[in-house]
Nucleic acid binder design. Structure first.
Lengths: 128, 128
DNA sequence: ATATAAATAGGAATCATTCCTGATTATATT
DNA sequence: AATATAATCAGGAATGATTCCTATTTATAT
């Protein structure tokens, strides 16, 4: 993979924020440094950085959010202002509140575990 | 809220499947019963049913999936075939495999807890 | 039976994301 | 330092999911 100022800039911006931004937010930030950058370039580089494993992504309310923090952590999401805050779950099954940031009110939890199902360990037909 | 055959049909279809479908999949099913139904109607009714609390939704790979099972449960997602299977987590923090369907390989876990942050408990400004 | 507000069909609009193409650029080689 | 070339880019079109709009239909209260 060749060096590019665009990719480096995208990466630095993600590393420096804790806001779990959308691609469009990153695009605006990159534009303030490289005014001619295109949205497609930002999307492509976000995808490449994710393939490299140096950033992560997940979806919130139907859109992709990116995260420069690849260490194991969970997210608290405020359903009103959409704040996303990192936290470390300790024993989730015993209480929704364990490990949550102070004074935050947890109303619902969503756990999604991803991997390979019994069928896909041995076959290749796509279901979706 | 007035009765409508369309809403009732959407609801029945969701109750009868375990496949965590997209709006479009539901639309196809409804069409086989009410051929003139429109996609907008399906989306609107899915939203209304969710507001009533009788179905749930969440996003997978950037698109909305619906679930007629509103009881507390978690999902295992196969990253290859996109199978989504319900399971009951027991003690997630001690092992990714606890409570998983037999022979499934868990590779990553995502936990999102939603509610109100400290700020939104008392103020109304949206951050978004 | 009638009135009326809610719900609909059909299609246009929007928004996030991906794809395409001709131009630019990092870098290996001379 | 100049050149070659494959990777990357900018700009914009295309796609796909979702929402919005409007004239028509329909459930239901009277």
């Amino acid at each position: 993979m060749r060096y590019s100022e665009q990719r480096e800039t995208v990466f630095q911006i993600l590393k420096e924020t804790q806001s779990h931004p959308s691609a469009d937010w990153v695009y605006d930030k990159v534009k303030s440094i490289l005014p001619l950058v295109s949205l497609g370039t930002v999307y492509r580089n976000l995808g490449e950085l994710e393939d490299l494993g140096v950033i992560k992504s997940f979806s919130m309310k139907g859109a992709i959010r990116y995260d420069g923090n690849v260490a194991d952590h969970s997210h608290f999401i405020c359903r009103k202002c959409n704040l996303m805050m990192d936290f470390q779950p300790k024993d989730i099954s015993t209480s929704l509140h364990n490990g949550l940031p102070k004074n935050f009110i947890a109303e619902s939890m969503e756990i999604q575990i991803s991997g390979l199902c019994d069928n896909c360990k041995t076959h290749s037909k796509k279901r979706n």
